[in-house]
Amino acid sequence: MERVLKIITLDIRKKGFFKNLMISLFVVACILFLICTKGEVSIIPKIMLQIISYILLVVFSFSLTQEFSNKTDKMIFTGIFSRIEIMFSKLSSFIIAAMVCFIFYEILSIVCNTFNSKMLLNNLYSFIVFAFTLGTFELLISVFTSNFLLAGIIGYVLYFDLILALLNQALGSGRSEAVKQVIRSLPFYIANTGFYSGGYTVNQSIIMICCGVLFLISACAVIYRKDI
């Protein structure tokens, strides 16, 4: 049990983990309050939710790639913890980062008078599932690229504005229902659409979790064989 706790907290104990995340959230929130007029305060949580997804993308992209860029990969991957344990430590930090963002988002909702207690568990669940799937995907990309910028760009292209615009355009076209159903079942489409709406359906959850598990297994397999 002690070893499990050490693995879970290994990454979050790094200097600046919570500090940088909280500073980012507070700065963005302050900017939103400054640019929004009094009557528009109620839309701040919705905007913040979208920005949080980008903040999490940056956190996930940076987590593993920083080890390669800082030349600390040999130290962490050849230390007392196995490579698989290090990967699970990274994933644990992603989930914790998402939960911190969730708490901040809910507090912001209370401040803006948009808090809905009935959506609390749904929101928490969507934060965790989103972090799990996007986080494992970024881990997989990171073990191949070892470059923060490239990992972030790939994650952005496949999960955010560009791909969503293309997929929504395809859904609005005259394509067959079978093709549209395939599009609606893609994790690249489900991730942010479900996150922004405050929850995932059962089918969407299964797809997201299964894809996340597949990404994680693939990332662990690659890092296990990677010459470090």
Score class of each variant (00 low, 15 high):
Phe215Gln: 10
Phe215Leu: 08
Ser61Lys: 07
Val28Phe: 05
Ile12Gln: 05
Tyr54Ser: 05
Ser173Val: 06
Leu21Ile: 10
Met87Ser: 10
Phe60Ala: 12
Gly155Trp: 03
Val157Cys: 11
Phe115Arg: 00
Tyr105Thr: 02
Ile31Lys: 08
Thr9Lys: 12
Ala151Arg: 02
Val202Gln: 08
Leu34Pro: 06
Leu34Tyr: 15
Arg3Trp: 13
Ala98Met: 00
Ser82Lys: 05
Gly16Pro: 09
Cys210Trp: 01
Ile107Glu: 02
Lys74Asp: 12
Arg225Ser: 13
Ile35Lys: 06
Ser197Gly: 09
Ile223Tyr: 03
Asp11Ile: 05
Leu158Trp: 00
Ser63Glu: 10
Ser173Gln: 07
Arg83Ala: 07
Phe60Lys: 11
Thr193Val: 11
Asn192Met: 10
Tyr156Thr: 13
Phe115Val: 02
Gly152Glu: 06
Leu158Lys: 01
Leu32Pro: 10
Ala165Thr: 15
Ile153Tyr: 09
Ile107Leu: 13
Ile183Glu: 10
Leu139Lys: 03
Val58Lys: 04
Cys211Pro: 07
Glu106Phe: 01
Glu2Thr: 14
Leu167Ser: 04
Phe62Met: 13
Ile43Val: 14
Phe18Cys: 07
Gln50Tyr: 03
Gly79His: 05
Thr114Gly: 01
Phe104Ile: 04
Leu121Ser: 09
Phe88Ser: 04
Leu25Val: 06
Phe104Gly: 02
Thr145Asp: 02
Ser173Arg: 04
Cys101Gln: 09
Phe33Leu: 06
Ser117Arg: 01
Ile23Trp: 06
Phe18Val: 03
Leu108Lys: 00
Phe188Gly: 03
Leu162Gln: 13
Met75Tyr: 15
Leu216Phe: 14
Phe26Leu: 15
Leu121Trp: 10
Lys38Leu: 09
Ile76Ala: 11
Ile31His: 08
Phe127Val: 08
Val213Cys: 11
Ala98Ile: 01
Phe18Gln: 03
Ser126Met: 12
Glu138Pro: 00
Val58Phe: 11
Leu134Thr: 15
Tyr125Leu: 14
Lys226Ser: 09
Lys74Ile: 12
Phe195Gly: 04
Leu214Thr: 13
Cys220Phe: 03
Gly155His: 03
Gly212Glu: 10
Val28Lys: 00
Val202Gly: 05
Leu166Asn: 05
Ile84Glu: 12
Lys118His: 11
Gly135Cys: 00
Phe137Pro: 02
Asp11Pro: 08
Asp161Thr: 13
Cys220Ser: 14
Tyr156Arg: 06
Lys226Cys: 04
Ile107Gln: 00
Leu150Pro: 08
Thr193Cys: 03
Ile80Thr: 13
Asp161Gln: 10
Val27Leu: 12
Tyr156Val: 10
Thr65Gly: 11
Ser69Val: 06
Ser205Lys: 02
Phe60Gln: 15
Ile223Arg: 02
Lys19Tyr: 11
Arg3Glu: 15
Phe132Lys: 03
Phe33Ala: 01
Leu124Val: 04
Thr9Ser: 15
Ile110Lys: 00
Asn116Met: 12
Lys180Gly: 15
Ala97Gly: 02
Asp73Met: 11
Ser185Leu: 02
Asn116Glu: 13
Val59Ser: 08
Ser63Phe: 00
Thr78Leu: 04
Val111Tyr: 06
